[in-house]
Amino acid sequence: MNRKPLAAVVKELRTEVGFGCPVPGCGNPYLEWHHFDPPWSIEQHHNPEGMIALCAEHHKKADNGAFTNEQLAALKKNRAARSDVRGEFDWRRNKLLTVVGGNFYYETPRPLVIDGHNVVAISRDAEENLLLSVEMLSLSSDERVVLVDNCWENIGSPEDLVSPPSGKKLSITYSNGDHLSVEFLELPNASAFEGRYKRQAFELLEFPLTVAEVNCRFGGTDIALTPAGTTIRANRITGCFAAYCGAGLVVNLGLRWRQNFCLVSQPSSRLSPCPCGSGSRYKHCHGALV
């Protein structure tokens, strides 16, 4: 059985905790699925009554016995904590401006696309809350972070991971130099925008405004997205603005990204769809890297 629950189970687990980690004082919206009654090691199941949504930190602690089954069952029913979590999410309902390596993309669902991969994508749930998806690219075949609609699917073995309870920052760094950060902040008015970015606010912006600042680098390449601008093959891009586009910064380099290679099984035929879910045939996707 696949350890990832079905979409209906994920929805139920996220909803019952108010879309944030239910441990008191946490509320982190980036969630994993903990099987506690019975544990996954005893019985592989996706029974929501014996599961709970937790952030990565508290999931790890739960795996190591930090909570009893009775405590976890109580957290699933803690409506007071659920209300507190939901109250922290007002910033996630504003209009969104994504600042990608010094470039500005307003209400753009795929702000960073590299070689067809949605490195950073942002959608909204039924209540208009922002949902973050990340596909970290790497020239290394090691595991790299995959986050889908605020749900962790893979983390790998980062050298450093920052994901505070507020959910307003995600920063992850690997030993080969791969790094990606997404930081959310709320700007109440045009003056706040101008004070932070040292430029006049764009006319289309609606305040209060939520900003997602995206910066990253990829080990073994000259690609660097920093607050000062985006550098790709000695070319600097900065200060661009686009609104209501399908994608923001789109880069086609033709690199053979190898991340999570060990997680992709080889199908019986190289003509079969690649198990990674890209939609390409295996021979044109991970099979081309063998």
Rank of each mutant, 00 (worst) to 15 (best):
S171P: 08
P48V: 12
L185Y: 03
S268V: 13
N103S: 05
P5N: 04
G87T: 02
N235P: 03
I114R: 01
L96I: 06
P24V: 05
K95Q: 09
R236D: 08
N150L: 11
R236T: 13
F193I: 00
S268M: 12
R144C: 04
S123M: 03
D63H: 14
D37I: 07
L289P: 13
L13D: 00
L139G: 14
V134Y: 09
R86M: 14
L97P: 00
P273L: 07
D115T: 02
L289C: 13
V134S: 02
S272R: 10
H35Q: 01
W257L: 00
T15Q: 13
T230F: 09
G279I: 10
G287P: 12
R217P: 05
V85I: 15
S278F: 07
R144D: 00
N47R: 14
T98L: 04
L131V: 01
C21T: 12
A190K: 10
E43C: 04
Y282P: 09
Y197I: 01
F36P: 00
S166F: 06
C55H: 11
P275Y: 13
T173W: 12
E159V: 07
G27H: 08
T15I: 07
L132T: 04
P111L: 00
G277E: 06
S133E: 14
E186L: 10
L130N: 03
F241M: 01
C21Y: 03
L132Q: 04
T230R: 00
L112Q: 00
V162A: 11
R92V: 07
E213A: 09
A242K: 00
L97C: 01
P164Y: 10
E203K: 00
R281Y: 08
A80L: 09
G25S: 07
H35T: 03
N2M: 10
E107R: 08
V85L: 02
T230M: 11
N154A: 15
V214F: 04
S265E: 15
V162N: 10
G25V: 04
C240A: 13
P39I: 05
H58I: 10
A201D: 06
R124P: 01
I172M: 03
E70K: 10
C274P: 13
S41W: 06
N176K: 14
I42Y: 08
E107K: 05
L75C: 06
T68Q: 08
E143V: 15
V211T: 02
C245A: 14
D125T: 09
F19E: 12
A53W: 09
G101T: 04
S265T: 13
E186M: 11
V113W: 01
E183P: 07
L204D: 13
A224G: 03
R3H: 13
C274W: 02
I232V: 15
C240Q: 13
H117T: 14
G25D: 09
S163K: 09
V290Q: 15
P38V: 07
P22A: 01
L130P: 04
S140L: 14
E127G: 02
F19I: 05
V264G: 12
F19H: 13
W33R: 01
W152R: 02
V99I: 07
D115E: 01
D37T: 08
L147Q: 01
E206C: 05
A288E: 15
Y174H: 06
Y30L: 10
R14D: 10
T226A: 10
E16F: 05
S269I: 07
A8D: 12
C26W: 04
T231R: 04
D37G: 05
